[in-house]
Amino acid sequence: MRIVVAPPAPALLPAYASLVDPVPRLRAATRAAVDWLGPSVKVLADDLDDQRVAESLLGRRSDLDGHDLLVMANGSARRSEKAPGHLDPRAAGYDEWLRQLLRLGDLEGLASLDVDEGEDLLAAGLRSLAVTARQLADRGVTVRDVQVDHDDCPYGVQYWVVRWQCGS
């Protein structure tokens, strides 16, 4: 099973295209990671807006019985004074912790995320991420290989694009 975690940034939507792409590296990384997924992909998103970004990236609707997973999540949007949610001093620490869990493919850790604090920090998709991690861990799935395609915070929003190759 292949899993990709990517941010549900609306800037990725074609409807919001600019003449100069404000997120070229994120877009390239996301596209490459999504292309790595197989033909049958289930989207896990916290709301319909995030789902829309995911399905735009996939170029098709989510497959409810999909073999691979595309989880739409990102870190805090309170990473700087210019960030959408202004600066929250807790944000960097929270994101560092989340970064380690994603880099390690630590499903137990992700299943135990403090979602409330994350939402306070305007992180996105944490419920989907935590629920997915819990379900995978309960099924005995483990993350065998991790590839971090993107790790950046260009507009005060922490983005990751991460690929997990899983087994059980």
């Binding site: 609306p10 919001y16 600019s18 003449l19 959408p84 507009y155």
Partner: peptide
């Protein structure tokens, strides 16, 4: 008729 030059406000 023309996209913005570079829009990220509210879209990041």
């Amino acid at each position: 008729l023309r996209p913005p030059a570079r829009a990220i406000r509210g879209l990041a």
